[in-house]
Structure formats: structure tokens, C-alpha cells
């Protein structure tokens, strides 16, 4: 069908919508739901700016049709902070360590790091962090403050 109904749990809320089946998940989130925190940088799966969590795992939302997320759970950057606006420890660590400049790639990093920390509960080495974020391109920071921020997030989390 060229149109489909989807039911996706997005940031805790179940969304049901009819969409064109060719729509990318990234565009669906941004244009149809107004969740513009997920950014689109390359639309061919290299830059990682559009990284979201699908059932808790990081994926490129530009390399997924929205319809493929039907029945699944999506988390975007908008879900990170507390309801009262308090930062998630990862966000706080990024702010503490000047881990962002223009901020365009940042949401993708945050989502990759969230999953990384959940799957690596012990403080990782720098090399492990570097590998974990190597699927996210940043053109501003030169990465080293992001690595510091990830380590700091482990401290803040405790």
C-alpha cells in the first residue's frame, strides 16, 4: 500500500497516524509530529545526527521507514530531560564539559550515549567511548570534550 496506518509509542505516548509508506522515520518525527530535536544531516546513514532509540537501541532514523517502526517504541532527544526541565545526567555532562558548539549533531550523540551507558554500566575506557560515538559525526568540537562528557555522565549518574 502506498499509505499505511502506524501505531508507534513515541517518548512514552502512543501515536496513531496514517502516513505515506515511503516516509522516513526522521521526517515523520520532525514534520508530522513536530519532534524537530532529531536532526537530519546526511540522509544516507553516515553522520548519525538522526540517531534515535528504537526499543532502546540506537538506530539511524533516516535509514528507516516510519512504517517499519509500527508497533515499536521510539525515544528521541525530547524524552531525555525530566518533566520539570531538569537535565538528564548525559545532558548535564555535555553542558558541563562544553561538549557541543553548534549543537546540530548533539541529539544524535546523546541518544547513542544513552544506549551505550545502559549497555556498559561500568566506567569505560576512552577507546571504548571513542568507538561507541564513532558512528556520530561532529564537525565543531573535535570530540575530546564529548569523551570527557561521557565520562562525567558516569560520575553524575551515580
Amino acid at each position: 500500500m502506498s499509505n499505511c496506518n502506524v501505531k508507534i509509542k513515541i517518548n512514552g505516548e502512543v501515536i496513531e497516524k496514517e502516513i505515506e509508506s515511503r516516509w522516513l522515520l526522521s521526517d515523520f518525527l520532525r514534520d508530522k509530529l513536530g519532534l524537530t530535536g532529531t536532526h537530519v544531516g546526511c540522509e544516507h546513514g553516515v553522520c548519525g545526527a538522526c540517531t534515535i532509540l528504537l526499543n532502546g537501541e540506537p538506530v539511524r532514523s533516516c535509514l528507516m521507514l516510519a512504517v517499519q517502526a509500527d508497533g515499536l517504541e521510539v525515544e528521541t532527544v525530547e524524552s531525555l530531560a525530566e518533566e520539570d526541565g531538569t537535565f538528564h545526567p548525559i545532558q548535564q555532562a555535555f553542558a558541563n564539559n562544553h561538549a557541543l558548539q553548534c549543537g546540530f549533531c548533539t541529539p544524535g550523540f546523546l541518544m547513542s550515549v544513552k544506549n551505550f551507558m545502559e549497555t556498559h554500566p561500568e566506567l569505560p575506557t576512552d577507546d571504548e567511548i571513542r568507538e561507541a560515538i564513532s558512528g556520530n559525526l561532529c564537525r565543531c568540537t573535535g570530540y575530546s570534550n564529548i569523551i570527557k562528557a561521557v565520562k562525567d555522565a558516569y560520575v553524575l549518574k551515580c
Binding site: 548519525g48 540517531t51 540506537p58 538506530v59 535509514l63 547513542s112 551505550f116 561507541a132 558512528g135 556520530n136
Partner: peptide, 9 residues
């Protein structure tokens, strides 16, 4: 193979 975000899909 690619990066983690590719290997998850």
C-alpha cells in the same frame, strides 16, 4: 561492520 547504529538494524 559499520557502526553500532547500523548493526542494530
Amino acid at each position: 561492520v559499520g557502526h553500532n547504529q547500523i548493526r542494530t538494524r
